[in-house]
Measured scan of single mutants.
Amino acid sequence: CHSECLGNCSQPDDPTKCVACRNFYLDGRCVETCPPPYYHFQDWRCVNFSFCQDLHHKCKNSRRQGCHQYVIHNNKCIPECPSGYTMNSSNLLCTPCLGPCPKVCHLLEGEKTIDSVTSAQELRGCTVINGSLIINIRGGNNLAAELEANLGLIEEISGYLKIRRSYALVSLSFFRKLRLIRGETLEIGNYSFYALDNQNLRQLWDWSKHNLTITQGKLFFHYNPKLCLSEIHKMEEVSGTKGRQERNDIALKTNGDQASCENELLKFSYIRTSFDKILLRWEPYWPPDFRDLLGFMLFYKEAPYQNVTEFDGQDACGSNSWTVVDIDPPLRSNDPKSQNHPGWLMRGLKPWTQYAIFVKTLVTFSDERRTYGAKSDIIYVQTDATNPSVPLDPISVSNSSSQIILKWKPPSDPNGNITHYLVFWERQAEDSELFELDYCLKGLKLPSRTWSPPFESEDSQKHNQSEYEDSAGECCSCPKTDSQILKELEESSFRKTFEDYLHNVVFVPRKT
């Protein structure tokens, strides 16, 4: 048989008469490798580009789960590009990614509803959504962080984005990388972005840091009482949809009607710091009717980097990364020049730590249904340095008659930039024990000054392991946590139920 035959053949030295091919099969003959313009397919066939392209389009058009959109890589027609490569849609070739590779997620039936953290986790790592997304989240724990972890990498949506009755959302900033909504599939009414009845939605994105392009379709905003109209108009300008909307697409009466839409800028007039305090004062603000001013709200939190936005980490279910302080308005003076500047002394802060701070007014709604208010920009203030805590785990070892090696770990709280350490030492008198000992005694162990690591005695271990207080009263049991108490109650309830079950099964009433 021919060298490319495997198993047997019907005619000697003829690659077209093989029972099976050793390498690849091409047009009725066995070959060692697939010549151009053919590609290896499933490690035994040679196919042309049209064959591989037909497989790709067949799966793409069917949208069946589990099928493969075949691509070409290293002269092979394979189910998908290997790690580190992405497909070129024009020629199906796998090309190296520039940075992290995109991950295209194809949605069944063309859309997916995100109504819980669990459903959001199914899209973790996706960068391109081939379909439409509907966000409908009523509640949950730590929602802002969970949504950002699972949806934060999405850069492109081919269909539309719909935010509907998501009472738990305060902001859409968890879509931190969303840059493009194509609108290839539109919501009824030709809408590519749809926001309806979101009672706590206050911000779409921080438009000073976020760009969003909507290729096709219109915007729809109705019944978002805490979303200011200025935020919607800003989205029109940034996304390129200005002029597409009709009169009733953006409701003037049901958007922002319960919001404090600040239209003035508060400026800080005085800032002073110490290692654990920050004193702030800002310019006074009074609405047209000074009785509408209820006070100020001061927001602050630790910020290692200057990239904080107002609604980071917030949701309507209680999660809030900001510390909020309510401040009463100052006494009002008739003389504008003698107006008191409101302020606040922030206490209990960490030394040498940068804080993000902003302040906003708290006002009631005027009778004319106009909203007044003022808010400052987010500023960054760093507390002063102070003395560091003591170095940890000092170790001293003498390696000769004239040297001592000293080692330690950095302090747990540096409280500033540590530039150097101060080492103090003092000579001590020799131990009298060394002169009084009889060095001729056998088995004498000389006193040693070398360091030995501390260890816990058996008594201390027994005390720590004991669940009861000892007789001397030195140790006591740790208080039980809520989960331990709940577990004990469940076990007790189970024992009672099981005992009742045994009584009912074992003891049967005697027939009379």
Rank of each mutant, 00 (worst) to 15 (best):
L153W: 09
I378K: 09
S173V: 11
T273C: 15
L133E: 01
W207D: 11
F268R: 00
D115S: 08
I181V: 03
S321T: 09
E187V: 06
L147F: 12
G343D: 15
G295D: 14
V128R: 12
V325S: 14
V325I: 15
G313D: 14
D249G: 11
L108Q: 04
K177F: 12
Q403L: 12
L331F: 10
I134W: 11
P388F: 00
E155D: 04
N263Y: 05
A303I: 09
S116L: 03
K301W: 04
S119N: 09
Q403T: 04
S158R: 10
N211P: 04
L151V: 14
G183R: 02
I137G: 04
Y223Q: 07
E231G: 14
L172M: 06
R124F: 08
V390P: 12
K409M: 14
K103E: 08
M297T: 15
L169C: 15
C261P: 01
A303L: 05
S319D: 13
Q216N: 05
L186P: 09
N136V: 14
I214N: 09
D384P: 09
S396I: 08
C317Q: 02
C126L: 00
A149S: 06
L294D: 11
C126V: 02
T323L: 12
I378T: 10
L265R: 13
L151R: 00
K409P: 02
G125T: 03
Q382F: 15
A145E: 05
K277G: 11
R247Y: 06
L186H: 14
K103G: 12
G373F: 06
K301L: 05
E184V: 07
N211K: 11
T127N: 12
R179S: 11
G256I: 03
R176K: 10
S321V: 14
G131I: 00
E156Q: 08
I135A: 03
C105A: 15
Q216H: 12
N224V: 02
K267W: 12
H341I: 12
G152H: 15
E237K: 14
A251K: 10
L280N: 01
L212R: 00
E246C: 06
W205I: 11
L406N: 07
T361G: 04
G139P: 01
K103L: 09
W286S: 10
F220L: 09
P336Q: 11
V104K: 02
Y300G: 02
E237P: 05
N224A: 02
D206M: 09
R247K: 10
P287V: 08
E283Y: 04
Y167T: 08
L180E: 14
Q354W: 11
Y300H: 14
K360W: 09
V381C: 15
R369W: 10
E155K: 14
D292C: 06
Y223V: 06
V390R: 12
M297R: 01
